[in-house]
């Protein structure tokens, strides 16, 4: 109990005994963590945006002419029963014509007696099943009675899928890179600190301090440094978001600031680096 208390209080005192090294550690952690946070914020926004764009791809299922209202409702229900179909909005012949007229200012209704545009369902599906599933789903819709034709921008979806998965890979790659950089900076810091304290550590060993007792305070110190840097980087991020009004550029802002995780990552990073460096030394 006394020993544990000693280790913790030594760790805390250590923060102030070697102020410069503490400052250096916290500063480098703060820097990389802020980068990491901002990076996370941006990448989540990008991924979210891409997801949204993909979600906008709809399937148009055109109906045969002359279906009764009852038949249309039944058809709609059948479509909605197919797995992965989210919504199926009915778009009547009149609505189609109206839209057409909006697009082309000339009034064709006088030229053509009958409305030639078919009614349709605007179908939204969940795009998490891969391309094959999507293709199956479309053929299922096509086979339904009363459906004339299904139009789907397959190439657009394929491109979108490819783009978003390669983007995801790149983002993960950058994130891991950033983690490594901060690991490296911390590693160099702790090495410098240990070098500066080599004689001190040796003396402690000579007067009978156990290794665990020499290491312990370093661990405690690293945890506190991680905590301070973690909280600090969050504040810095909030400040940056506020100053540069990033909220308007990065709308998925609340969602992707996980304060507890950010601090936890900082603590783990700091402790883990310290742990590895010290195990190799003492």
């Amino acid at each position: 109990m006394n020993i544990l208390f000693f280790i913790i209080s030594e760790g805390l005192k250590g923060l102030f005994r070697s102020k410069f090294s503490t400052f250096l550690t916290i500063a480098s952690l703060l820097l990389t963590l802020t980068l990491l946070n901002i990076y996370f914020l941006i990448s989540q926004n990008i991924l979210q945006k891409v997801g949204e764009l993909r979600g906008r791809i709809t399937i148009e299922a055109f109906l045969e002419d002359g279906l009764s209202e009852n038949e249309i409702t039944k058809l709609q229900q059948k479509i909605l029963q197919i797995a992965k179909v989210d919504t199926a909005v009915f778009f009547s012949k009149d609505a189609a014509l109206k839209k057409f007229q909006e697009l082309f200012t000339d009034d064709y209704s006088q030229m053509i007696e009958e409305n030639p545009l078919p009614a349709s369902f605007q179908i939204r599906i969940r795009l998490d099943g891969g391309e094959q599933n999507t293709a199956q789903l479309i053929s299922k819709i096509e086979k339904l009675e009363g459906i004339d034709e299904v139009i789907f921008h397959r190439k657009l979806l394929t491109a979108m899928n490819y783009y978003s998965s390669s983007l995801r890979q790149k983002l993960i790659f950058i994130g891991v890179g950033l983690l490594f950089i901060s690991f490296g900076m911390l590693w160099i810091n702790i090495k410098i600190t240990l070098n500066a304290k080599a004689r001190l550590i040796e003396t402690m060993e000579l007067v009978g301090a156990k290794r665990s007792l020499i290491r312990g305070p370093f661990y405690v110190q690293s945890i506190f440094e991680g905590m301070v840097a973690g909280v600090g980087s969050l504040f810095l991020c909030y400040l940056l978001v506020y100053i540069f009004d990033l909220k308007s550029i990065l709308p998925y802002y609340e969602l992707f600031f996980y304060p507890i995780y950010a601090v936890l990552i900082s603590i783990i990073l700091s402790f883990f680096t310290c742990f590895l460096a010290i195990r190799r030394r003492i």
Binding site: R17, K197, L200, T203, E205, L206, V207, K210
Partner: peptide, 19 residues
């Protein structure tokens, strides 16, 4: 460490913990 606690040591260059 237990052994060393039964010994006292004094060095030419004092070896105090300077922090």
């Amino acid at each position: 460490p237990l052994l060393r606690r039964q010994l006292g040591c004094v060095f030419q260059d004092f070896r105090l913990l300077d922090d």
